[in-house]
Write a protein that binds this DNA or RNA. Structure first.
Lengths: 158, 158
DNA sequence: AAAACATTGACAGTAAACTGTCAAATGGAC
DNA sequence: GTCCATTTGACAGTTTACTGTCAATGTTTT
């Protein structure tokens, strides 16, 4: 199109980045609406998913690592979930402070309901786009992220 | 892996969704660091990009639509940018309240500097992954987003 | 022209992420 | 066993995004 404003506007990388931002927003809004009736939000649902997904139980800091978020962000959500009775803290045999986050029976029930709401959507995605393409896409994104993270010099900024 | 907790954890759609969340976070953190020395953040930089990208000038609400964000979110960023002297408001011949957002010379200078910082990163992405794959990926994400947005029944919730 | 509707900016309040800092707890180095 | 670095949770403050509401402006319908 433009033949003089040749800043990297039409760069394929830019189109992808913008689309990641847009899709991220859409996913969060969709999720918020999907699980609202269960008293969940996208963020709380994600934390429950992270707990459920793990083999075994973990303290908050470990969950945060798995999700790629800051400890403090996840801590606040977990505290909210605990206040709502969806998770509780179990003593950690190997660390007095870092208590283990576990779902309560109520938490498991709610999470199962959320999973049921989500399943048809996930199926529709795979049906539209064929699972292989989804996997390819996820891999491409992961490769970009790995590159990006290794570029930003220092980890553990805290 | 798990042969009894057969919730759609290993669903390809889920892996993609999680990766979108992670990459979104990484991109924002990377961008924040990249343009920090220019007095910008990822959010401000994105708004400047949205202004620069458009053919012509637009009021805030139009920029928000283009970015897939709420009017109010973009308004706040634009006000910040105006306070920093990077954008200003031009009268809109066709609408007395909806003033047009334009970059100041200083804003253009800063945005150009940000573009220079970003260019090698974008090139590296395209070099790693080949531009066609980037485009394919962006298309796949867009298709998912369109589907998702048409699923959530009503637009214009406001 | 008047009434109904839609768009826009402004203002208020909430949610979710971040950074920075501190003290407690753990794990190693010596 | 003592020191030292790392990990962890807690607390405080900031940024960015959201929703909801209102008044002002524009647009459409009648």
């Amino acid at each position: 199109m433009s033949d003089e404003a040749d800043s990297p506007f039409d760069h394929p990388a830019n189109a992808l980045v913008l689309e990641v931002f847009r899709l991220n927003g859409s996913l969060i809004r969709f999720g918020d609406e999907l699980v609202k009736s269960l008293g969940l939000t996208s963020a709380r649902w994600q934390v429950l998913g992270s707990i459920a997904h793990g083999r075994g139980t973990f303290p908050v800091a470990r969950l945060a690592d798995n999700m790629g978020l800051a400890r403090q962000s996840v801590q606040r959500i977990v505290d909210d979930l605990a206040a709502s009775g969806l998770v509780s803290f179990a003593p950690n045999p190997t660390h007095k402070r870092a208590k283990l986050v576990v779902m309560t029976p109520q938490g498991e029930r709610v999470f199962r309901q959320a999973t049921e709401l989500w399943r048809p959507v996930a199926d529709a995605m795979a049906w539209d786009a064929d699972p292989r393409r989804l996997s390819n896409t996820a891999e491409a994104l992961a490769a970009i992220r790995i590159r990006l993270e290794s570029r930003s010099s220092n980890r553990s900024s805290e």
